[in-house]
Design a protein around this nucleic acid. Structure first.
Length: 189
DNA sequence: CAGTAGATGCTCT
DNA sequence: GAGCATCTACTGT
């Protein structure tokens, strides 16, 4: 079933990041339908989180989507090359989000393989968007309960023991906040 | 294997 | 003008 925006509007972004592991990130882009099962995600807690683009209520043209209601996309360009996909969470005005760092192909493996070329798995946030065809210009600030980008649950159970929790990747600049255990990864895949 | 350099462009100071 | 919520290709074992 397609998850409604209300699913992403709950107050605890860290708990939500955990619950998003195992869900399907689906796209219908360039005439191709495909989906990746979410293996890894990180919470970005906004206001009080130095690693977050919206730390201290910082508000710019780039991170504006984070201030919208939960259940929309926030896609931005990193290192000039990679598009990174986030789900905006919480209510309007509370700028939090979940970064999808890794998926494994669930539907449309052929399409995904072609998009990735030499890269093998969609591990790493830049490869997630590459695999699914997501880019910043077309897919930023879109509602995620309808095509071209949506999130589904197919009821595959995930046991708490299947998850590893730890610090986020690539956020050393965030000082103490770099140590927060806001990253979740599914061990088996 | 490990380690590193280079690509690349947008955002904010 | 610096610095990124990164990835690949290439080096040397």
């Amino acid at each position: 079933m397609i998850l409604p925006s209300s699913f992403f509007q709950r107050p605890d972004v860290v708990e939500l990041a955990r619950d998003m592991i195992g869900l399907l990130l689906c796209t219908h882009i360039d005439g191709q339908v495909c989906a990746g099962r979410i293996l890894e995600a990180e919470a970005y807690a906004g206001l009080n989180d130095r690693a977050s683009h919206s730390f201290g209520n910082r508000r710019t043209a780039r991170n504006e989507p984070m201030y919208g209601p939960g259940g929309r996309s926030y896609v931005y360009l990193c290192y000039g090359i990679h598009h990174l996909f986030n789900v905006v969470t919480n209510r309007e005005g509370i700028p939090q989000g979940v970064l999808i760092r890794a998926v494994e192909p669930a539907w449309g493996e052929e399409v995904i393989r072609n998009r990735l070329g030499k890269s093998r798995a969609a591990t790493g946030p830049g490869l997630v968007t590459k695999a699914l065809g997501i880019d910043r210009l077309r897919h930023n600030a879109l509602p995620l309960d309808q095509p071209p980008v949506w999130i589904e649950s197919d009821g595959i159970p995930l046991r708490p023991g299947d998850l590893v929790q730890g610090p986020r990747v690539g956020v050393d600049y965030a000082g103490e906040d770099a140590l927060l255990p806001y990253r979740f990864r599914w061990i088996f895949h």
